[in-house]
Design a binder for these strands. Structure first.
Lengths: 197, 197
DNA sequence: AACCATATCTTGTCGTTGTCAAGATATGGC
DNA sequence: GCCATATCTTGACAACGACAAGATATGGTT
């Protein structure tokens, strides 16, 4: 199965090579020909599996959302579901930035791709359910504001952290930094509550 | 001054063309030759002003941080400084996404560029001061957690909003949506405070 | 007023990339 | 054993970023 025409599992190999490459150099420095070389196939081999570069990014994003949903779902059983979901979200972004940096970039992938839409929806559902159960909100109450706020915090923190904006401001250890941010969110909640009155 | 060798203010023209192009198609679809065409100059003209593509992105990011600092600074005088700074932050991101989408992408620009470092520091200072004054925190108290949390919320919300993740979830009007999120942050603060105890 | 160092822009070129088309080779069902 | 099809290769082309070398305008100096 090696070195002949058929690779065996080229699609998987290419995705993993792409993720690794994005993790190193960012999504803007990814080249189809480059990952084809690391996979040991011809420069046009990726086209068959993904169509074009956008197709590869779409596949990476879809797989990323599936992974995220798989990691966050178990947190729903916890009493502090919302907090734990957020912690897992941030950890996923940091540990799998190769996926994360593509998932929220509609200029890179095809946002309406069915597989991507389904995977993303799965992730969103977990978030909304975590907001509901974690905050003890009844089914007939609107949870949108809370969910959007929670999502914004963890997404913003992950993004800024990955973009190296908290150097020398937060503990190097991510878990310790998360604690500081969680306390900050509690403090921020009080501050905003006082200012919107 | 027109149509001869010297353009007059080519550097400015190129930056504006780049921002407009990024706003339309995202930073990954920007080409130096493309903006050179829209500016009516030769394909190698941008190189003289910016060195390379990364240099252009660096200039855009620096100008973006300067604009952001100029817009947020006036909010420091308000009693609800932190809230207003956040509102301005989000509005800036939405109205100037051509800048915003480059400012936090170290894989695109040169993060250690002196001009960029200075402009970014100006923006950061405003944020930290807003966190202090807006929350009534004394000079000897640590404001890091609050500032990071506040920044994460507005940055995450802006990013997710621009990436089209709140369609059909929030009011179309950005100001109304901001109110919902602000209330969500207050609610989130209470929830997290209960869960980290 | 003449000159020239320099800033600004152009022209030409090269290697790389994404994409398409056409061909080669393996796989699995009948 | 055969063939439709999936998989991969080879070859080509336009567009791009980058570099080098040349052309032209500008501003200061004498």
């Amino acid at each position: 199965m090696n070195r002949s025409y058929h690779h065996g599992d080229l699609r998987r190999t290419l995705i993993e090579a792409a993720v690794a490459r994005i993790e190193r150099d960012g999504p803007s420095n990814l080249s189809l020909r480059g990952i084809a070389r690391t996979a040991g196939v011809s420069h046009a081999a990726p086209a068959h599996h993904f169509g074009d570069k956008t197709g590869l990014f779409t596949a990476v994003a879809a797989e990323g959302f599936s992974l995220l949903a798989a990691r966050t779902t178990p947190m729903l059983d916890r009493p502090d579901a919302l907090l734990q979901t957020g912690v897992v979200y941030v950890r996923f972004a940091v540990e799998h930035r190769g996926y994360f940096e593509v998932m929220f970039r509609p200029d890179l992938h095809r946002a309406q791709d069915p597989e991507l839409v389904a995977a993303r929806q799965k992730s969103f559902d977990v978030l909304y359910r975590a907001a509901r159960t974690g905050a003890g909100i009844a089914d007939d109450q609107d949870v949108t504001g809370l969910a959007v706020a929670a999502w914004s915090v963890v997404h913003g923190f992950a993004t800024l952290y990955l973009a190296d904006n908290f150097r020398d401001q937060l503990p190097d250890d991510l878990d310790l930094a998360t604690v500081v941010v969680a306390e900050g969110v509690a403090s921020l909640g009080r501050t905003i509550a006082a200012q919107i009155s």
